[in-house]
């Protein structure tokens, strides 16, 4: 239990998907213009993560490893992710058309969101770690906890950035730096702030 808690906190703060590994940057930069849409995307990413990561964990440990088919993992993972994203898209369209409209093109693009694929690939790496390592994923529950933590970390990062960008609308930014340039620098400064979590240990 202690291990799971430590894994959870680490994946939110110290191993934050955005600030430590730059995963899911494309949609992170493109959708973070207002808080409401970005929160929607954050929830969608979290949901897809907590569904796909345990599924991929089971595939990796129960199918690929015993059969020695490790080299097929890329194709298998991406197929699982694409299928589940399709499912989420249909659910969102049915139950929340307004969210569906505002997420627009980015919902299908979650399939190619690096945070999702990256989560699965990091999970694959961490299976091999010794049990005592705070980053190790030792079972299905750990995989779930890691997915939840990474998703929440991503959600938090995108909502924070959206909040800052809403305020920045009124700032006088040099012209060539407007839009994308200043956003990058903002994210850089946020990443600096997040670095103070890097020694976090529970």
């Amino acid at each position: 239990m202690e291990h799971a808690l430590s894994l959870f906190m680490r994946s939110i703060f110290a191993d934050n998907m955005i600030f430590a590994y730059f995963l899911g940057m494309c949609s992170y930069l493109a959708v973070s213009k207002n808080v409401k849409t970005s929160a929607g995307l954050g929830v969608a990413v979290t949901f897809v993560l907590i569904v796909t990561l345990p599924v991929n964990y089971l595939l990796q440990t129960k199918v690929l490893d015993p059969l020695n088919l490790g080299y097929l993992s890329f194709i298998l993972f991406i197929a699982v992710i694409a299928a589940i994203v399709q499912l989420v898209e249909m659910i969102v369209e049915k139950f929340s058309p307004s969210l569906y409209a505002s997420l627009g093109i980015f919902l299908p693009l979650i399939a190619v969101n690096c945070a999702i694929m990256g989560g699965s690939l990091f999970m694959q790496q961490r299976i091999g770690l010794p049990d005592a390592d705070p980053k190790a994923i030792t079972g299905l529950f750990d995989a779930f906890v890691y997915a939840l933590g990474s998703g929440i970390g991503w959600f938090m990062a995108i909502v924070c950035l959206a909040g800052i960008r809403e305020k920045m609308e009124y700032n006088d930014v040099p012209k060539p730096l407007q839009g994308l340039g200043i956003t990058f620098i903002t994210v850089g400064l946020m990443a600096l702030a997040f670095m103070c979590f890097s020694g976090l240990n529970i």
């Binding site: 730096l177 340039g181 956003t183 994210v187 850089g188 400064l189 990443a191």
Partner: peptide, 17 residues
Amino acid sequence: MPAMALILVGCVIWVHR
């Protein structure tokens, strides 16, 4: 540090634009 990569790309965009 990871943070500097972001700031550097920001600067590259600035110069490029």
